[in-house]
């Protein structure tokens, strides 16, 4: 009996230790990935300073010239456009779903969102090339510029925007429904309309949560590779308008992984690109958390 119970306790301890190691290892994985990418990208710093790499737009791997500016700019551009396009749609439809709509309508929209969320990114890419790119080059661009292939910053932004819609909406719906009924009652019973209540109470109350959701969607958008790669044109030049091609960081990595081993320092440059993505995502997560924490303390 006692040996049995000590056996059980031992088993409990061993399992605890094992689970502890798995947990710690997964935590270490973050460090490991960061460190690994950093070490791999160190060689490039021997020839170029970090700031030079970031500020230069000369990209000639054969000549050992690695200017990351076009890629960073490309990534920022399309991410920005994606969020600008998706945020209002997501906020409005999430408000509609939580504050205004009847439940049968909700079911329909949620089904649509589930499908949208489930569509693989390569399919978004295909859709982009079949629909968005021709639309831009034939319908939209002629109003603004003389000629555009359609494979542009804007195409990347639109496709990316649609891709982050389901994530944003489901996060927003979750956040809005978490607001207790009393807040709505309080505002409505003062004679405010539903929209006034949404605008002044719900949006205000959930502001930190909205920030968090946007941060999450941003970091998802930063790293999106294949869909964006298929519609952006991938020219390593600084884009000057929405109708120029661009070349985001993830696309750079994906397009060149095959040849990177044959050109000196190329591998290091691509790993630096990956490291930059990693750092951006890391900073976004950490700082948005800090912001949220502070705002929450202020409001609560």
């Amino acid at each position: 009996m006692s040996s049995n119970s000590s056996y059980r306790i031992l088993k409990n301890k061993i399992a605890g230790g094992l689970m502890f190691s798995i947990t710690v290892f997964s935590v270490l994985l973050v460090v490991l990935i960061g460190l690994g990418l950093y070490l791999k990208s160190v060689p490039i710093f021997e020839h170029n300073s970090f700031w030079h790499l970031i500020k230069s737009s000369e990209w000639r791997p054969g000549n050992n010239q690695f200017g990351f500016l076009p890629f960073i700019a490309g990534t920022l551009w399309i991410t920005l456009i994606a969020v600008i396009l998706a945020l209002p749609i997501a906020l409005l439809s999430a408000l509609f779903l939580t504050e205004f709509s009847k439940s049968y309508l909700k079911k329909w929209v949620f089904t649509a969102l589930d499908i949208l969320a489930g569509i693989p990114s390569v399919v978004y890419g295909v859709w982009g090339t079949l629909f968005i790119v021709p639309w831009i080059s034939e319908k939209l661009a002629p109003h603004f510029v003389e000629y555009s292939t359609g494979y542009t910053v804007l195409a990347g932004g639109i496709v990316l925007g649609v891709m982050i819609l389901p994530l944003l909406i489901s996060l927003f719906v979750e956040i809005f429904s978490a607001v207790p009924r009393e807040f709505r009652d309080a505002s409505l019973s003062l004679g405010a309309t539903k929209w006034q209540t949404s605008k002044h109470v719900i949006l205000r109350k959930t502001f930190p949560g909205i920030l968090a959701a946007v941060a999450l969607a941003l970091s998802r958008a930063f790293g999106e590779t294949i869909a964006v790669l298929m519609v952006c044109g991938n020219l390593p030049l600084l884009p000057h308008s929405l109708f120029d091609s661009c070349y985001p960081l993830p696309a750079l990595i994906a397009n060149n992984y095959g040849e990177m081993l044959s050109v000196p320092l190329y591998e290091s440059a691509l790993m630096l690109a990956a490291f930059l993505l990693f750092i951006v995502v890391f900073i976004f997560n950490a700082s948005s958390r800090a912001v949220i924490y502070r705002i929450e303390r202020k409001f609560k």
């Binding site: 207790p180 009393e182 807040f183 009652d185 309080a186 109470v201 205000r204 109350k205």
Partner: peptide
């Protein structure tokens, strides 16, 4: 209401 519910402002 039962529990006071100040608006978030």
């Amino acid at each position: 209401s039962q529990r006071p519910c100040p608006l978030p402002m």
